[in-house]
């Protein structure tokens, strides 16, 4: 390589070198630009981390991105966890219950439906599938208020089930798993099992489910995140503070900010900031750990359309 370079005329070597230098320059500029954008995406989270280490007085007296002289993070966490008999812990557990139950039930219910729609031939199959597809276009909040009215006679308002059940029937889940099952589960395998006299339920649980486990992981994560982040539905359906998930609970705290109590008795800023931080940390850590599964799921669901 070196010998080749040496044997070339000087002018050509110069040209190669200038081109390499130019490429390096462009690379530096592009990367700096990307770094600048990265700062934009990180700023609110970094601010939240710093703000959680400050006391109420330090929040307004120190620069927004400067660390305080002595850390008040532990003090703030204790304040949060003991506020109103530990209601924050309750909200955290509620969020985990909602997100976990919805994610598990979505996987079960959607994979069953997707299996039938992908591998069975029956009258009404296409119509059912298109009905489900179409419903993906309905704005979610349109159904929320009528849902509240319908849940009243069913005694589902102000219950865990009232929040969980409406979120389980995910059209995206069926759509996503149907594509996956259609493409990944071999028909020969199902036929062979049928010849051996296996029942449909056995085929589904023993053959289909193990094969589609990667897709189920993805759907689990996506619906877990979706439920953990949902605000409007629990806001409409729940009126008992001890059933709130984190976003609704923190919103309740935030709404106290303009009341006189905020200045005197309750350190609202501290509670909201520390509460927000602890609410998003598990999501951010989980997201970094499981990013691959989430990305493949989201992109398979959309690229393959």
């Amino acid at each position: 390589m070196l010998i080749q370079m040496e044997s070339r005329p000087k002018a050509e070597r110069e040209a190669v070198r200038t081109f390499a230098a130019w490429k390096w320059m462009v690379s530096v500029v592009v990367t700096l630009l990307l770094l600048l954008v990265a700062c934009y995406f990180l700023i609110p989270v970094v601010w939240l981390l710093i703000a959680a280490t400050k006391t109420q007085a330090q929040l307004s007296s120190t620069g927004i991105f400067s660390l305080p002289s002595h850390w008040a993070l532990w003090h703030n966490v204790v304040l949060l966890f003991t506020y109103s008999h530990g209601i924050y812990v309750r909200w955290f557990i509620n969020s985990a219950i909602y997100a976990g139950s919805v994610a598990i039930l979505t996987c079960v219910v959607c994979s069953m439906a997707a299996y039938a729609l992908a591998k069975h031939v029956f009258r009404g199959r296409e119509a059912t599938f298109y009905l489900i597809l179409l419903s993906m276009m309905i704005p979610g909040t349109v159904a929320a208020i009528p849902l509240f009215v319908i849940e009243q006679p069913l005694h589902l308002v102000n219950t865990y089930m009232g929040v969980i059940l409406p979120l389980v029937a995910s059209p995206f889940g069926v759509y996503f798993l149907r594509i996956y099952i259609r493409d990944v589960v071999p028909n020969e395998m199902l036929e062979a099992a049928k010849v051996d006299g296996a029942r449909e339920a056995t085929i589904f649980w023993q053959i289909v489910v193990p094969i589609i486990r990667p897709a189920l992981t993805t759907l689990f994560l996506i619906s877990f995140i979706g439920t953990w982040n949902n605000f409007f539905l629990p806001l409409v359906l729940l009126h008992n503070q001890s059933l709130y998930p984190l976003p609704v609970g923190i919103q309740l705290l935030l709404s106290l900010i303009s009341t006189p109590a905020a200045d005197q008795s309750v350190p609202i800023y501290q509670l909201v900031i520390t509460g927000s931080l602890i609410s998003i940390l598990p999501m951010i850590i989980g997201f970094i750990l499981f990013r691959k599964h989430i990305v493949t799921g989201l992109t398979q669901g959309s690229v393959k359309l």
Partner: peptide
């Protein structure tokens, strides 16, 4: 030309994991 691609992809996508309520509170 872009360097550290996996890092940038992760950072840009990170807000997806942050609930809208908390994004609104932070901003």
């Amino acid at each position: 030309y872009a360097r550290f691609k996996p890092f940038f992809r992760l950072v840009y996508f990170l807000p997806y994991a942050v609930p809208g309520v908390f994004a609104s509170i932070m901003w």
